[in-house]
């Protein structure tokens, strides 16, 4: 659906994006994470044809954004940075004006999206009377107007209160569920991303440092939660047998490379231990993110272009596991 291929962007001397190669498949809710200035907005700007890359190319649905912007963006809806409207016009008029930049839009379609975001009753009020939440909903309405297949949301939750965030999360899920939209979500709100996104990419100082599923990101590599009788003795025995390389907190073991959970269970049963629980240990996305940002990890690189982006924790494999 979306393909960044070797995108580099410099603003003068500052390198904003460094050889970004990333594919986002259709039908995903994809989270784009990174610190301020990591290059998220630059990447989205390039995708929308608002920022010219220094090198590389970006495409949507196979249409090059630089060479064939009109086709590439024909079925794209976006909220890019803070949504701003014409305060002196009504919500309806704002949508009408914006929709005509895409193509002729029947009034029924405008009413339909206004209804969908729950703004029908206030559609003819001047924008200056709208609350922040209503503006966010209007922004979502304008993004939905062209009947998009791809929705790009850049920090859509900025400034929303917990109720607003909850409502937004629900809307994103509905959009994905009801219309099977591909959604690219750039956000600082990691809990939101964790709750709605299936896959994520993390940018750090313009470099792609992780791309993979949220499950991959939150799974601590090699660490397994173990509940059995006499944990310390059992763990010591497993260490002696070379099946485990570390243990911690009286409930976690780290498997040796190439060792599967089934071998550990077999060894424990052979020891005559009762095994109550054995499961992969998980961390929050925030833990993972902070670890990745705090470490000097090597970037993931994808040789050749185009092609699938590097999946999983390549280059970052030890980050989660080393944290205690």
């Amino acid at each position: 659906m979306i393909s960044f291929c070797g995108i580099t962007k410099r603003f003068g001397q500052r390198l904003a994006l460094d050889d970004l190669t990333l594919d986002i498949p259709a039908g995903e809710i994809f989270g784009l994470l990174g610190h301020n200035g990591a290059g998220k907005s630059t990447a989205i700007g390039i995708l929308l044809g608002q920022v010219w890359p220094t090198s590389g190319r970006a495409s949507i649905d196979g249409h090059d954004v630089l060479g064939d912007r009109q086709r590439a963006l024909a079925r794209v809806g976006a909220i890019f940075e803070t949504p701003v409207f014409y305060d002196y016009l009504s919500g309806y008029r704002n949508l009408e004006i914006l929709s005509h930049y895409t193509g002729p839009t029947p009034p029924a379609r405008i009413r339909e999206v206004l209804d969908w975001v729950g703004l029908s009753s206030r559609s003819h009020s001047k924008l200056r009377t709208y609350s922040h939440g209503m503006r966010t909903r209007l922004a979502l309405a304008q993004a939905l107007l062209p009947d998009p297949r791809l929705l790009i949301l850049d920090e859509p939750g900025d400034g929303l209160d917990p109720e607003g965030l909850h409502e937004l999360r629900g809307m994103i899920r509905r959009l994905h569920g009801e219309f099977n939209l591909t959604i690219l979500l750039s956000s600082h709100l990691l809990t939101e991303v964790e709750q709605v996104c299936g896959r994520i990419a993390v940018l750090k100082a313009g470099c792609l440092v992780f791309s993979g599923t949220v499950v991959e990101a939150t799974r601590q590599q090699g660490w397994v939660r173990l509940r059995s009788d006499a944990f310390e003795l059992a763990a010591a025995r497993l260490l002696e047998q070379g099946l485990v390389v570390d243990q911690r907190n009286g409930d976690s073991i780290r498997l040796a490379e190439g060792v599967g959970v089934e071998e550990v269970v077999r060894a424990l049963v052979a020891q005559g231990r009762a095994v109550y629980e054995i499961s992969p240990q998980e961390q929050t996305l925030e833990d993972f993110y902070l670890a990745i940002m705090g470490s000097g990890v090597a970037r993931t690189r994808q040789p050749g272009c185009p092609g699938p982006v590097s999946d999983g924790l390549r280059g970052t494999s030890e980050m989660g596991g080393d944290r205690t």
Binding site: L73, V76, T82, P83, L98, T102, I152
Partner: peptide
Amino acid sequence: EEGTLRMILCRPISRVRL
């Protein structure tokens, strides 16, 4: 300056036409 230009250019209108 206000940001409405970004909103407009999220749409498939060419800069020349705009």
